[in-house]
């Protein structure tokens, strides 16, 4: 399993692997927001936590089809199916590799981009914390979506249509933490619920994703 993780990570870092693309997308989306809503700093700081969360979510969504598509095309997914590790393990490792290459950099970049949107000083810690807790759930759910649509040619739009409704609870709770933190309100309840959601997704989604991969490989 460690070998698979190392392989996935090195593949995504290599040229054309897509590492950094999600980050660049996040940067551009955040840079475009003031053009759309106007440069008033009070407005920007009001919407900053939500926009940063939404931007991170979309950047994450954009990179989902890379989780399985390449392995599907070149047949390595078939090899993995006959490998001595269970498919659930493969799905979990894929989600982990996606998080390390997407969720983690997004979390680390978010405070820097928060400066661009005039995020309230109290909000930086909570934004980073909520993204750190919430993005693993995005990767786990996204792996399930990628597993569902891996057999569909040009399934990118379909993948978004399926995954976005599944992201709703994470987005609600995650941006709630960031928003309350930025406004100086208590955040424990929302953060605890977000953590529960992430742990639940991490525990359950690899099984659903593995089931979907097995169906697609039949």
């Amino acid at each position: 399993m460690r070998a698979l993780l190392v392989r996935d990570l090195s593949l995504s870092v290599r040229a054309g692997g897509g590492f950094g693309l999600a980050l660049a997308f996040f940067l551009i989306v955040i840079a475009l927001v003031p053009f759309a809503v106007g440069p008033a700093t009070t407005t920007l700081s009001l919407i900053a936590p939500g926009i940063l969360w939404l931007g991170a979510l979309l950047a994450c969504l954009l990179s989902l089809d890379r989780i399985l598509a390449l392995d599907w095309e070149d047949g390595s997914l078939d090899l993995l199916a006959t490998a001595p590790i269970p498919m659930e393990g493969v799905a979990a490792i894929k989600a982990l590799a996606h998080w390390v290459t997407t969720g983690l950099p997004l979390t680390l970049a978010a405070p820097g981009l928060g400066v661009l949107l005039n995020l309230a000083p109290e909000g930086f810690l909570w934004l980073t914390l909520s993204l750190a807790v919430g993005t693993p759930a995005l990767s786990a759910i996204g792996t399930f979506g990628a597993a569902l649509t891996v057999g569909v040619r040009r399934g990118g739009l379909l993948l978004s249509l399926i995954v976005l409704p599944l992201y709703v609870p994470v987005l609600i709770l995650g941006s709630e933490v960031a928003r309350r933190g930025a406004a100086g309100m208590e955040t424990e309840t929302a953060l605890a619920l977000l953590g529960a959601l992430t742990l639940g997704s991490l525990a359950a989604m690899p099984f659903a994703a593995a089931a979907a991969i097995r169906i697609n490989l039949r």
Partner: peptide
């Protein structure tokens, strides 16, 4: 998808109340 969606639909319902 229907199974997983049901779980997330219920989660959304309660997250929205919050």
């Amino acid at each position: 998808l229907c199974l997983v969606g049901s779980v997330f639909a219920i989660l959304s319902r309660y997250a929205l109340v919050f």
